[in-house]
Amino acid sequence: MTICFAYFCNMLDPKMYLSNFVFISVLLMIADGFTLRGPSGPLVAPLGSSVVLPCSVDELLSVESLEVEWRRTDPETLVHLYQDGESRAESQQQDYQDRAHFFTDQIQHGNFSLRLDNLRAEDKGEYTCRVYSQQESGETVVQIKDVERLLVSSSDRSISASVGEDVTLNCSVDSHIPPGDLEVSWKKTVEDIQVLLYQDNEAHSSNERYIDRVELFPAEIPKGNFSLRLKSVRTEDKGVYMCQVFAGDLSANATVTVEQMGFSVSHIMVLILCIAASGSALLLCCLIYCRSQNEGVFLKLCFTS
């Protein structure tokens, strides 16, 4: 209202009229700016994938003096910068070099979106797109709500087991999904036998060969540890086992090899004792036989004399 009053009051003065007109024009340009369009909601993308952070404007802006700035807001980090008609990769924070890219040929059409490659778990957070064009500016916020990840790992080394012993087959799961919402299947791959299935927070085995011989470690499951304990190992247990994990459309697996089946120390000791006992028994039989033979000869000599 004050601006309008000053404007009409000074209409009779050409110099004052011109200065007020310029002032009002600049003020309106700064106040209005332009509206940037972002995504309709938070983004969710798989670990290691590429994700596009949308940022665009409907009206065409002058490329001259155009500046586009993408920043991570938590913490404040420069992700990428477009300035003086080109991408300024040298200005990027090191973590985003060679990973964050503009669609350079689309900038002149009002597309200031950013492509982020090789998505990492730590990329989760808020990003701000700020655009400056002459006296105008605008910004929009994009949130990467979650980075979907499902990583399954096991020991790189084969497991040496002996008949009758208990062994542990390692399987570790790293995921943004709570362990209780995962489905884990242990299989013996060559024979395609399901050894154990973890589903709906319960673990069970339906194969006769493994009933009462396999189990998980319940206290370790909340930590993502789905290792399998195989009890009283048999010779037919030798082979490759797969720990396969499912979470919606995601799945991942790791394998463990059980090899070098043989007798355990206790079995060997029993065998030695058996052999020793057999040897002792044989020796005793020989002594008894020899003694009986000697006694027979002695008695024969006595009767002949």
Rank of each mutant, 00 (worst) to 15 (best):
S206C: 05
T189D: 08
I268S: 09
I177L: 03
H204A: 15
Q194P: 02
P178Y: 03
I221Y: 00
Y241E: 00
D200T: 13
S185I: 15
V167Y: 10
Y198V: 09
A203T: 09
L228D: 04
S266Q: 15
S172W: 00
V245W: 00
A219T: 14
G248L: 07
N225R: 07
G224E: 01
S172F: 01
A254C: 04
T255M: 07
V265S: 12
E191R: 12
R213D: 10
G164Q: 11
L182Q: 01
V256Y: 00
G248A: 09
A219M: 06
S206F: 12
G248E: 04
D181A: 04
P218H: 11
S172C: 02
F217K: 08
I221L: 01
K231D: 08
G180K: 07
V265A: 13
W186S: 08
V184P: 01
V214N: 05
Q260R: 14
M261F: 13
Y198C: 08
G239A: 02
D192N: 15
E236Y: 04
I211E: 12
V258P: 04
M242E: 14
G262I: 10
T235P: 06
K188W: 04
V184A: 01
S206D: 14
D192T: 12
H176V: 11
I177H: 03
Q194E: 14
S172Q: 09
K238M: 08
K238D: 06
R209D: 15
F263A: 08
T255D: 13
I211W: 07
L216N: 02
C243D: 01
Q260K: 15
W186C: 09
D166F: 10
A247N: 03
A252D: 12
R229Q: 14
M269P: 01
N170I: 06
L230K: 05
S232C: 06
P179Y: 02
N225L: 03
V190M: 12
S264V: 12
L169C: 08
I177Y: 04
L196S: 09
L197H: 13
K188D: 02
G248Q: 06
F217E: 09
D249S: 11
P179M: 02
P179N: 04
P179T: 02
N170L: 11
Y198W: 15
N170P: 12
V258E: 03
E259R: 14
E236M: 03
V190D: 15
I221W: 00
D249W: 07
Q199P: 02
Q194F: 09
L197Q: 11
L228C: 09
H267P: 03
I193Y: 06
T257V: 12
V195L: 06
R229V: 10
L228K: 05
T168R: 14
E236N: 10
A219W: 04
N201D: 09
I268Y: 11
Y210H: 09
R209S: 14
Q199E: 13
V258I: 15
M261L: 15
D166A: 13
V256H: 00
E236R: 09
Q194I: 14
V256T: 03
D200A: 14
D166W: 09
E165P: 08
S264A: 10
G239N: 02
P178T: 06
K231C: 05
V184M: 03
T235K: 13
K188S: 05
D249H: 07
S172A: 07
K188P: 02
G262F: 06
S227L: 10
L196I: 13
E165M: 11
V240A: 06
V173W: 00
S206T: 15
R209H: 14
Y241T: 02
T255V: 13
